[in-house]
Nucleic acid binder design. Sequence first.
DNA 1: TAGTGTGAATATTTTCACAGCA
DNA 2: TGCTGTGAAAATATTCACACTA
Lengths: 291, 291
Amino acid sequence: MTAQGADVPEGDGQATARTAASPRTPDANVADANGAAIEVPAARERARSIPEAAVARLAVYLRALSSLAEQGITTVSSEELATAAGVNSAKLRKDLSYIGSYGTRGVGYEVEVLIGQIERTLGLTRKHSVAVVGIGNLGHALANYGGFPSRGFPVSALFDLDDDLVGVPVGGIPVSHIDDIVEVCFEREVTIGVIATPAQGAQEVCDRLVAGGVTCILNFAPIVLQVPEHVEVRKVDLAVEMQILSFHVARRQQETANAVDGAASSDGGPPGGGAGLPGEIDSANRMVERL
Amino acid sequence: MTAQGADVPEGDGQATARTAASPRTPDANVADANGAAIEVPAARERARSIPEAAVARLAVYLRALSSLAEQGITTVSSEELATAAGVNSAKLRKDLSYIGSYGTRGVGYEVEVLIGQIERTLGLTRKHSVAVVGIGNLGHALANYGGFPSRGFPVSALFDLDDDLVGVPVGGIPVSHIDDIVEVCFEREVTIGVIATPAQGAQEVCDRLVAGGVTCILNFAPIVLQVPEHVEVRKVDLAVEMQILSFHVARRQQETANAVDGAASSDGGPPGGGAGLPGEIDSANRMVERL
DNA sequence: TAGTGTGAATATTTTCACAGCA
DNA sequence: TGCTGTGAAAATATTCACACTA
């Protein structure tokens, strides 16, 4: 969850994305909105919301569906769509059930309908202005990226610290100075901030984005950002991804080793005391900083 | 909800796409009946039983620890480290318990020791050659990235389709042609392949990487890769991340709206047939393709 | 005394499996 | 007949809370 999900220690908020549970029952849960909303912290009412994990998958389904639509396909079964999305059909059906019942028994789903419903659920029927901070290699990549999704997530602001970069248009948009984040974000109604700066400045940048009214942040910097409750942060961490892959390689090798020898083996872990190769990982951790 | 916690998804949340993952898992550990694994299992057995989610977090702890080490701090309590990593201490302790008991009651953990143990667990005591395929904006960013982690994950090969690019050194390494993936990967013993190509060519590239002996793939292309059982795929999908953020914005707005009005619930779904704005999302789905 | 390590209690996700409808 | 929608069971993951010890 890629990660990302939310780990919420306790607080937890009351998510309320009407699930359209039972076809009928127009309000039903509106009731708890009463008590829950006011009952302070411990009010872990958790109305029936869409599971975090399911939300992430909905985006994947959406892509698969778009692809199908492009191919002119108008109907799909859960089985087919599941395959295209890389999940099993039971999970797919369950996920879709969270947003309502838009399938036809014995037939499947109408591609266009499903696309529309998922878009609605994900809030994609509205535009989300994006600001990219840190126009280094990655920032350039993001900014240049064909004007970003021509629609849906228009990049409307770029920021960097470097004076030589300020004013220079990247991907069609002139770079502004970091000092103007608050002002510019308000002006252009930026909703999503993408932090592609080195770790050092990230928190500061984050604070400014928040001050500028940004409520969603996609963080590429290798640090844990501190943000107020109402701000949502998702982190993309290349180093972590690589390390997870590394773990799997290691595990696999171990398995093989286990299977093969079975005896001999000098005990797990590398020789030497316990400090492994600290220096090695150190650089790995810095890996993304200048990405 | 927590904002912040975004990182470290639970289960899957974020980006893992284990394409051919067989939901199977017969009787995983249960130790291989036949001896062999009874003395050593400490590390081995343990390794395979670490929850996916915990593995991802270990990488995060590692970074926090490295940071502490740099500051000259030699000891940390679970509370402190947890804060630095953005999780709660209970979870952190549980995670650490998966790799062994390296703390001192009443005191905390020795930074260096923990670093060493986590590195070992993640298999970071060995180098993992990386190949980047698709030297577009993102590919450049990855390749240029200071030679990638000077150690740990050296980029040892770059590939692209463009003849004008072949031979040109990027980040110090000359770009090879995609047709030579298999050969070069074997030659340079590439373990991790990073796919930064448009969606179209991704599967093909993936197949070649696998043929070249690559067992881990980090996929930036917006498609679900088909791979054999023994290959591990992790997916980083910008479009998905953005859409998840979008979802949270939408949910939040709904909550506010709900709280305010509270009546007049027009029931789910936009009027009309229900197709939403297909065109809009379409572009969003293509968003990453040329990243 | 302060803080780890962990069994047990919860909470969340995933899978099953099947009733019910087009 | 074929496939969706979903309770309910099973599997995972997260939190609690506390015994235990350096």
